[in-house]
Amino acid sequence: MTASFVAPPRRLVTGTIDGRPVTVPEGTTVLQACRQQGIDTPTLCYLETLTPVNACRVCVVEVEGSRALVPACSRAVEPGMAVQTDSERVRTSRRLVLELLGSSVDLSLCAPEVRRWLVRYRADTERFGPAQAPEAARDAARPGHHGPAETGGAETCAQPVKDDNEDYVRDYSRCILCYKCVEACGTDAQNTFAIAVAGRGFGARISTEFAVPLPDSACVYCGNCIQVCPTGALMFRSEHVMRGDGRWAPERQTVTTTICSYCGVGCNLELHVQDNSIVKVTSPLDHDVTRGNLCVKGRFGFQFVQNRRREG
């Protein structure tokens, strides 16, 4: 059923990864090849369902003959390519990327593997000094200008949580600018373009036009941005509230895949249930109908079963 009907056969290419020969179909990325080899390669901005932007640079590897390191997520394996995934240069760059991110944004809600990578690369996120909140509002940052450089520590992206609608909250203090939400809102899935990257440099940020609140933007609350966010910067209101109350308990949650109750497209839902109550809805990335995407009804329209529960 999911076998592609039209894909032409692909040629095979052979290169080496960490000295071992690897043969993969043409077009396979270094990251895919590494994963096939069981080499744990850190990624932050990469997601199977999105076009690689290779912005985070935590997946860089060393390719013989290449002056700079190359991003594994988007570079295809070429014939004869010799890849090193754990050289001193690779380790240093990965460590620095993690240190730079850790020194500027709040990584505490990242997936557990991020913590693992921080340990593996011995990243010291404190080495640039104590965190210093930016002087001016980040939404007002102007391109090509910034205030006097911080001398007391490391300037961060700290800012207030954006809490402007009933469905989800945006805490850009946690944003690593991986572009995933922009891609999911844009051409990779939803094509609504409610958000984009605004500003530049350290002032770059995810924003609506003129930073208007979401209800004044083009947002249609599909929540596909929440699904792809790797740091908890975008979060279901239900999760945000429960975390605030100390009620959020992932260890007590079950995840059940089922089909959406609305239109006839047949979208797969993953219902995250805690204490017999749906607390969050995601969608499987590897299902070819949804590829992780839903609409507002599928993502947030589940409440009616709970309301009924409360009414008894």
Binding site: C56, R57, S104, G144, G199, G201, A204
Partner: peptide
Amino acid sequence: RDESCGQCVPCRVGTVRQEEALAR
């Protein structure tokens, strides 16, 4: 720091940390 496009982490944050170190 001002001219970094802000896309990749080494440049976006690295140029800030470089400037901060020189300021110190």
